[in-house]
Structure formats: C-alpha cells, structure tokens
C-alpha cells in the first residue's frame, strides 16, 4: 500500500516532465541506473580520492496505452454493411506489452446503435493502414497485439448500419485497449510482472484507453406535393365531363447529399385523358415525345407522364412539374 502511494506521487510528476499523456515515456523497463560519487581531499600535503559504493536503481515497467480514432466521423447510408472505423492503439509505456481489445456499440448520446459485423475487429496485419484481405480478424486471447514501447497497431472495426435511420442520425462505436498485465489507477503496482522481472506500474492512462468513432447517416428524402385546379367549360370549377384538371407537382429534396437520376412518373387518372402539349418542368414546355427533353407522355402500357429530374439536392431547390387532363 505504501509503495503504491509513492509511485502514484511519482507518476503524477510526469505531467510536468512529459509532453502529455499521449507522449511515450523514455527509459526502457529493466534499465539499471547506477550512481557512483567520488571525493577528493587533502590530509596534510597528501591529496587522495576515493569512490563511493555504486547505487543501482532499476527502471520499472510503466503500463500505458493510448487509443486514437483515425476516422472520427464516417458517412454512411441506411442499411450499409461492414462500415469501417479505423483506430490506432499505441503502447505509450516503456516496455513490451500485450493488449486486449474490446468494442462497444451501446453508447449514450446517439440516435442508433451500429451493429457489429462478423467478425467485427480486424488487425492491420500487413501494416499498410488499409483494410484488406490479408488483415486478420481479432480474437481476444488468441491474437492480442503485442507492442513494444512506442509501437502501434492499426485496428479496424466493422459495423452494419440499421435500415431504420434517417439523415443526420449518428451512431457511435468505441474501441477499448487494456494492458494485459493489468489496469487501475495510476501507481497501481504489479510486483515482478514488468519486463525482465521488474515491477509493472500503471501509468497516467490507467493502462486502459477508449476512443469513440461516429457513423453519421447521410440520406436524402424526396417529397412530391401534388395539387389540382379544375376548370369547367363555363368558367367554373365543377369536375364534370369535359372539364380540365390542371395538376401541379412540386418535388422537394430534403437531407444530406444528392439523389442521382431522379425520375418522376405520374399515371394519368382513370376516366381522364392527357392534354397533349401540357407537360411543363419549371414552366418550360416539354414535348410529349420521348426525345431530347426531360419529359414525355407515354400512352402504353399505362398512360402516364414521366420527367427525368436528374441529380437533385436540397440546395438545388424545388422542381415544379405541371400537366393537364380532361375528364372523359
């Protein structure tokens, strides 16, 4: 108990010495620090000198680890599978150490929980920083990464995104790395369990580190709002045979990103007939034929109008389609 408190006091001093907790710490575990003093003196006219005993202090192993997320926010679509978060696990201690990895998707403060893919955690076996076929799935207790002082390993975490998410929803996923020798408050000592039989002492990181990555949903939703105005032959608005119905459809995109190759179609209602030449896009006339312009009227198999809206986004504003039918 006493030695624990003293080592804690010593570790606390690190704040002033090292550049911060993420900074790896110096002298390798097991190093002997020796000191021998010397004194010279005169007795009468004779000058002599003598050395002291040599005091030796052994550098104990400090257990420290830092996890950083290399991909803090990843954009995903609803239902996307095996979406990668990339982490880096660094041994910031001063001796070789084995680390356990654990992921967690149940984190408060987000809108959805990512679903761990199977397998979910991969080690960057070929150290190229990119997830590829040669990277090994991680199995706790089987291929726990062993890192020398200052060494790091890149870790990939793969999650699936639920379908029932909407634009700007976030889902968080974290990765924890723990020193296998042990964790605890700074100063916790594991006697004789350090490199080369020295003591292992928990450093300021508590020998455990967790970082969180965020999946952010980018989804665009398109809403078409249709209105009608009836004009009968006598200047009124009665929907009688021969009356014209003018339809106006306003298409709005809301959300993040761009919907590509958006296509609008609307069937001509039963008991009505399309008015040739009445199709408009943003007030511009579209010919009825399937030609160079964006719109067409198709008589078969189902009578309908179609307008190719192309790429639409929220920033692009609304698109207004108009056409008319007559009541048979």
């Amino acid at each position: 108990m006493r030695s624990r408190s003293s080592l804690f006091g010593a570790a606390a001093l690190l704040v002033g010495v090292a550049a911060g907790p993420a900074h790896a710490i110096g002298v390798p575990a097991g190093t002997a620090i020796n000191n021998t003093a010397e004194v010279s003196y005169n007795v009468g006219t004779v000058t002599s000198s003598v050395s002291s005993n040599t005091v030796s202090v052994t550098v104990a192993e400090i257990l420290d680890v830092v996890v950083t997320v290399q991909t803090p926010t990843v954009s995903v679509s609803p239902g996307a599978v095996a979406q990668l978060l990339r982490y880096r696990v660094t041994n910031t201690g001063n001796g070789p150490e084995t680390f356990h990895l654990v992921m967690n998707n149940a984190i408060a403060g987000d809108q959805f929980d990512p679903v761990a893919a199977s397998p979910a955690i991969y080690l960057d076996s070929n150290n190229n920083g990119t997830f590829d076929a040669s990277d090994a799935p991680y199995t706790a207790g089987t291929n726990d990464p062993v890192l020398n002082a200052d060494e790091f390993v890149t870790v990939f975490v793969r999650n699936d995104i639920p379908l029932a998410v909407v634009d700007t929803d976030t889902g968080r996923s974290s990765l924890n790395a723990e020193s296998r020798t042990g964790t605890g408050v700074a100063g916790t000592t594991f006697a004789g369990q350090g490199a080369g039989g020295t003591d292992a002492v928990v450093g300021l990181t508590t020998a455990s580190s967790t970082e969180t990555g965020t999946y952010r949903v980018e989804a665009i939703s398109i809403v078409a709002n249709k209105t009608q105005v009836v004009a009968d032959r006598w200047g009124g608005t009665r929907p009688v045979p021969g009356a014209t119905i003018n339809y106006t459809i306003v298409v709005n995109a809301t959300g993040t990103g761009t919907a590509t190759a958006a296509l609008f179609t609307d069937n001509i209602p039963a008991n009505t007939t399309f008015v040739p030449g009445s199709l408009r896009l943003n007030t511009a006339v579209l010919t009825d034929g399937a030609d160079a312009d964006a719109g067409a009227y198709e008589a078969a198999p189902t009578a309908r109008v179609r307008v190719a809206l192309g790429d639409i986004s929220q920033a692009g504003g609304s698109q207004t389609i108009q056409f008319a039918v007559t009541i048979n």
Binding site: L7, A11, I25, S52, T58
Partner: peptide, 24 residues
C-alpha cells in the same frame, strides 16, 4: 525500482574515518 518520471534523491555522505582532519 522506479518508473520514468520519478524523482530520485541521490545523497552522498562523506565521513572522516582518520585521526587527522581532511582539507579541501
């Protein structure tokens, strides 16, 4: 056994073990 960051206090003690004083 000490961890990096530890302050070590090194003390040297000199004792005159002769019958005469030592100078300088």
């Amino acid at each position: 056994k000490v961890v990096p960051g530890t302050v070590v206090i090194w003390t040297v003690t000199a004792t005159n073990v002769c019958q005469k004083p030592s100078d300088q």
